[in-house]
């Protein structure tokens, strides 16, 4: 698979480490009320869809950026690659 890095252009997927579903960006607030009940599904449960899947890849042997890759799990076709930083900001995660 070739991941088209937004900054570096097309890179071989071997340069990346796979983490999993991009929903992991939305880590619950550990200090909030009921944090435990939210952390259990956050840590252990996954949608695991057959089809389009947004997932986190880390460019370890490159610029060490985190990417959100949209990939079809039935064909391995990659349809979108974004910087995880931008996605997280857009979704209200970071300052």
């Amino acid at each position: 698979m070739i991941i088209n890095h937004p900054l570096l252009g097309p890179r071989d997927a071997q340069e990346f480490i796979y983490l999993g579903d991009a929903a992991l960006i939305h880590r619950p607030d550990g200090m909030a009320e009921g944090a435990l009940e939210r952390f259990i599904p956050y840590t252990y449960l996954r949608d695991n869809p057959a089809g389009s899947h947004r997932e986190l890849w880390y460019h370890e042997q490159g610029d060490r950026s985190w990417l959100v890759v949209t990939r079809n799990t039935t064909t391995h076709e990659i349809t979108a690659v974004e910087m995880a930083r931008d996605v997280a900001r857009k979704e209200g995660r970071s300052k």
Partner: peptide, 18 residues
């Protein structure tokens, strides 16, 4: 390997990835 797909019919999310 299809566990998540079939159990989704029952509204369940599973602790697994395929």
């Amino acid at each position: 390997g299809s566990s998540s797909r079939v159990m989704a019919h029952a509204g369940m999310r599973l602790p697994m990835e395929s």
